[in-house]
Amino acid sequence: MASSLLTSCCFSLPVLSFSSSSSRLSPPKSLLSLRTRSPNTLLSSSKSLSLLEPLTLPKTITSPSHSPSRFSVFAAKGYKMKTHKASAKRFRVTGKGKIVRRRAGKQHLLAKKNTKRKLRLSKMIGVDRSDYDNVIGALPYLKVNRKAT
């Protein structure tokens, strides 16, 4: 009984193929000749596997006048660039898009430094323009205004 259900399913599904010569869809000629055969010869035949014609898709036409444009790809699709977490703790971005950092020298040995010097070391300072590429490379998702001076 299962084989009769299988053969009835095979004959009830229409199979269509694309032909490059005509724009409308039509069943392949080999399928038309199968309808006259018995279901047992269809399933036992080794030719039944190669009856379906391959689907041919229209080729895309590229014009030779367009030369490939040069552009740089920073990350491929689906790949997330990783943030350097130590750099993320050391650098911030101001409202205007400048990168700022802390000054060095205010971690230890503060007893011998006068108050004026310690106040000056407490303030944030902008990162030098020559170091911007290094900071942006470590922090790829940082919202930086490169034109800010």
Rank of each mutant, 00 (worst) to 15 (best):
A104P: 10
R70N: 13
L139S: 10
V127H: 10
L13N: 07
M1Y: 07
M1V: 04
G95E: 12
L109V: 09
V73R: 01
K47D: 15
L119D: 10
P27H: 06
F71W: 06
S69G: 13
M1H: 03
P58I: 02
S8P: 01
R129S: 09
H108L: 03
N114W: 01
K112I: 10
D133V: 09
S87W: 13
A2C: 12
S46R: 01
P54H: 00
S45Q: 00
S44H: 03
R117I: 13
P64N: 08
K113H: 13
R102T: 13
L13H: 06
L110S: 01
S17W: 01
S26T: 05
S19P: 00
S38G: 04
L42R: 00
Y141G: 09
S65T: 15
R102D: 13
R24M: 10
A104W: 02
L5D: 06
K116S: 14
S45N: 06
F91H: 07
A111C: 07
P27C: 12
G137C: 04
S20V: 06
L142R: 00
G97Q: 11
S72N: 14
T62A: 11
Y79R: 09
S23T: 12
N134S: 14
F18S: 04
T94M: 05
D128Q: 06
A88H: 04
M1T: 04
K147F: 15
S65W: 04
L34D: 01
L25W: 13
L55V: 02
L142V: 15
T60R: 06
H84W: 08
S65I: 15
P68N: 07
V144Q: 07
K77P: 05
Y79T: 14
R146F: 14
T83N: 07
L43K: 02
S63L: 12
K82I: 14
R24A: 11
S33P: 03
P14I: 04
